[in-house]
Design a protein around this nucleic acid. Structure first.
Length: 857
DNA sequence: GCCTTGTGTACAT
DNA sequence: TACACAAGGC
């Protein structure tokens, strides 16, 4: 989700680049983004449980481009769900389930196109899919790492530690985590939008010296992030205004008074919101990540004095080191927490890795003992660009043919002088002139700014248009530019100029009108605390729940669902030749996960706690204060608020405000690592209670199903479900969904002898009545000359697929060719027949469009 | 008029 | 997941 509207908000500092320019660098990639996009193209197959590698090929296209351009990609995968993000994940899961139900309903109604849309919306990337991609990547010599929690934080670690110089993602959160350079919206040809951390101040328009990265982070959190919903009526613009005007106020006081002081809004900020704010901030700071070089689980940033790991378990409960390593290597299924691979980097030899041996140690695998981080000198040049004034240098600049300036109707349009000037200045020829011209006294930064407005009007692919790129990248990459150039005296001048250059902070020279009204010397003690905690600004649902409990409960629910499924199959499918009782985990449409996903029984767990409920013990207050507090009313005269200062000022709040223990989130309210080992008892008790609940519900559900009626408004039901409903109700909901799908399974009046698969249509009906046959599949496939998914020609039986997936397949196939005129084949009915009384005969034939192919003359 | 918020749509092939 | 757009509040 990220920060809503952040990327458009940062448009001013969008830098259109091609990643090939970073040749020789390491690129860390948010693998989930590509997987998700790749899965989009094969959503149906995934939903139907068919084997496909389409999403792998999709990702490899990007990676091949990078390898070709001498980049070292590191694929970073998501790990366990973070307790802080539990609500977000739950909502996503519910949405996916809703769309699954909707898809089934639409298929039943014959609306295949819309059903496909729904299936695309309920794409879920399973650990198995991630594993498949990892396997292919490793064969190609590409490093992969699974984050203990969020890939975002893991990517940030790679950036922070210097392992990766560039991050590729679609998630704007990466900027909050502090990544130096992030490329968004990258296409297969490496074109994307780069945002640099060092330029964020240009957007916030904060006076020179008053900007800190923390302010940017505060702004984003205030506007609403994954860990904290925004206050009503507060978006990025208003949040920016607040931190633009605010100077030395400590955070808690600032949050209390900002609506009236800076925004003139009648908004009351509750203490709960402020607590949530601090937690969100800490989650960005201290989320647990895996350091591949130390091979240890570490917080993204070192804990400040006064903060103990147990205080911030919402940023990721501790995981034992060996387990964390196995997760990082991709050997543990992060859903089931069971081992499902056995990758050992010490023994592994990639088969298809590039044979070209690099001498650079930073190009080795990060798991290799000889791996070394790429020297920083190459990249610092990008920040302190050499002043080329008076220098004669040879610059190699690759002109990328990918840029096509679409003439559109330019020729027909009447251009203004400004536009024409802009076009001229942006023409490639002109740019080369600019670069090579030593007479141009403008700094690269000034040129860039000058042209930025006209760039907007020209081309959708602006990356090659930016006049800053050639010298920027040539300094970074091309060896022809003497790197020592930036070490001479002129660099010093440049640095001095940089202070006032627009590159650093174009708003640094604030006009008098922009002067802050904020009194820098106002003592914090005088800040008025607007005491009102009654505002229902934020949800106070538990977030810091133990992830282990979550996983175990999820598992236990899925065990329960397995039991139910098996029982159903036992009762209704005596003739089933293969055991389908265990739904395929490989499917994005996995019923196992579908069922387990609706669990919210954790809320009823004795271990679930409300982190917002604060119980402050005297011991904690003492420890927090003695450890972390500086002078209480220290009024810094320094304009720049360093992180440690802000941290201290935050700590000070706990004394000033009535709410003590600001930083020390009460450990009594949060699960501790040692708690995690004691939860197995909880698991069994919860499982038992769920079994009871579900069995009762199952009974009632069956009785309602036996009436032969569909709960037609089931999709509405699910969307209207109150989150606070009991676990029993949740299971009921799942059952109702199951019933829906059981209803969509087609019936066939005919009987035949070969290869019969029987699936349940309705509970209570006899197997004989509910038989649906797939007739002579092999014959049909051979006759038609088409390939039937999952069925080799030598085989006679259908592949063992989940029954409900099979039913969906049937539904799909029934409606897949409705619009296509085609002659009848043997065993095949007309379209009208299909619509009237669908049979699975056709479904087998028409899978994967095989019908069309076999009809070719 | 500015800003937030909700809805619809594209994403790949 | 992000963007574009429209509606609605202030």
């Amino acid at each position: 989700m990220g920060i809503q509207g952040l990327l458009p908000f940062l448009k001013k500092i969008h830098d259109h680049v091609n990643i090939a320019k970073f040749s020789g660098c390491t690129v860390a990639i948010d693998a989930y983004c590509w997987l998700h996009k790749g899965a989009f193209s094969c959503a149906e197959k995934l939903a139907l449980g068919e084997k496909t590698d389409q999403y792998v090929y999709y990702c490899m296209k990007y990676l091949e481009y990078m390898l070709k351009n001498n980049l070292k990609p590191i694929m970073v995968f998501d790990g366990c769900h973070l307790p802080s993000k539990k609500d977000v994940e739950k909502n996503r899961r519910e949405k996916r389930n809703m769309y699954k139900k909707k898809a089934a309903q639409l298929l039943r109604e014959g609306n295949r196109a819309e059903a496909r849309e729904c299936l695309q919306r309920c794409i879920d990337i399973s650990p198995e899919m991630a594993l498949r991609l990892m396997e292919v990547c490793r064969e190609r010599g590409i490093d992969c790492i699974v984050a203990p929690y969020e890939a975002d934080a893991q990517l940030a670690l790679l950036s922070k530690s210097g392992i990766a110089q560039i991050i590729v993602t679609e998630d704007s959160d990466l900027l909050l985590f502090g990544c130096e350079r992030v490329i968004f919206k990258m296409d297969h040809f490496g074109n994307g939008v780069m945002i640099e951390k060092s330029r964020l101040n240009e957007v916030m328009e904060i006076q020179n010296g008053f900007y800190t990265f923390d302010k940017f982070r505060y702004m984003c959190i205030l506007s609403g992030c994954d860990y904290l919903p925004s206050l009503s009526g507060i978006g990025l613009v208003k949040a920016c205004k607040v931190f633009k005007l605010a100077r030395q106020a400590d955070l808690k006081t600032l949050l209390k008074k900002f609506p009236t002081t800076y925004l003139k809004m009648p908004l009351t900020v509750s203490d709960e919101y402020i607590d949530g704010f601090i937690k969100a901030y800490n989650t960005f700071l201290y989320q647990l990540v895996f350091d591949p070089l130390k091979k240890r689980l570490v917080p993204l940033h070192d804990y400040e004095d006064g903060i103990e790991p147990n205080d911030v378990t919402y940023a990721g409960p501790y995981i034992p080191q060996e387990k964390a390593l196995q997760i990082a290597l991709g050997n543990i299924n992060i859903y089931s927490m069971e081992k499902f691979a056995n990758f050992n980097p010490d023994n592994f030899v990639p088969k298809k890795a590039s044979k070209k041996k690099s001498e650079s140690l930073h190009m080795l695998s990060i798991w290799n003992k000889n791996y070394r981080i790429r020297p920083k000198t190459h990249l610092t040049e990008t920040q302190n660009r050499p002043n080329l004034k008076g220098k004669e240098v040879v610059i190699k600049t690759k002109i990328h043919r990918t840029e096509i300036v679409k003439p559109a109707d330019d020729s027909l349009e009447v251009k203004t002088d400004g536009e024409l000037t802009g076009m001229y200045q942006n023409s490639p020829k002109r740019k080369l002139q600019e670069i090579s011209s030593s007479e141009d006294e403008q700094s690269p930064c000034k040129r860039r700014r000058k042209n930025s407005s006209s760039e907007e009007e020209l081309s959708p692919k602006k990356f090659t248009k930016s006049p800053r790129k050639p010298e920027f990248f040539s300094s970074l990459v091309e060896a022809d530019v003497d790197s020592s150039i930036c070490e001479n005296a002129e660099e010093k001048n440049d640095k001095e100029n940089d202070i006032v250059s627009p590159r650093r902070n174009r708003f640094a020279l604030a006009s008098p009108s922009k002067k802050t009204k904020f009194n820098l010397n106002a003592p914090k003690a005088k800040e008025v605390v607007f005491a009102s905690s009654s505002s229902p600004c934020i949800k106070t649902e538990p977030v810091a729940e133990d992830i282990k409990v979550d996983q175990k409960l999820e598992k236990s629910t899925s065990v329960q669902s397995d039991i139910e499924t098996k029982q159903e199959i036992k009762n209704t499918l005596p003739q089933l030749k293969k055991d389908n009782s265990k739904p395929s985990n490989k499917s994005a449409f996995s019923w196992n996960r579908f069922k387990s996903s609706s669990q919210n029984s954790i809320e009823s767990s004795p271990h679930s706690r409300n982190p917002f409920k604060r119980v402050v013990s005297e011991k904690q207050i003492t420890s927090t204060h003695t450890k972390s507090l500086g002078p209480i009313h220290k009024s810094s005269s320094e304009p720049s608020m360093a992180r440690s200062d802000s941290q201290k000022s935050l700590d000070n709040l706990s004394q000033v405000s009535s709410h003590s223990n600001l930083y020390s989130i009460d450990s009594d309210c949060l699960p501790k690592p040692e708690d995690m080992d004691d939860l197995s008892d909880c698991e069994s008790s919860v499982r038992n209670s769920e079994t009871n609940n579900s069995s009762q519900n199952l009974g009632s559900q069956n009785s309602s199903q036996s009436s032969g009626r569909l709960t037609n408004n089931s999709s509405q039901d699910i969307s209207n479900q109150d989150n606070s409903k009991s676990s029993g109700r949740q299971i009921n909901k799942v059952d109702s969904c199951e019933s829906l799908l059981s209803q969509v399974i087609p019936e066939c009046p005919e009987e035949d002898d070969d290869d019969i698969i029987v699936v349940k249509t309705e509970p209570g009906t006899s197997p004989q009545e509910s038989k649906v046959k797939v007739k002579n599949v092999q014959k049909a496939s051979m006759m038609s000359g088409c390939r039937v998914s999952g069925l080799s020609r030598g085989k006679k039986k259908l592949p063992a697929v989940d029954i409900k997936q099979q039913s969906l397949k049937d539904m799909f196939s029934k409606f897949s060719n409705n619009r296509n005129e085609k002659p009848k084949l043997k065993h095949e009915k007309s379209n009208e027949d299909l619509n009237a009384t669908p049979t699975t005969d056709n479904s087998v034939l028409s899978l994967k469009g095989g019908i069309q192919r076999c009809l070719l003359p």
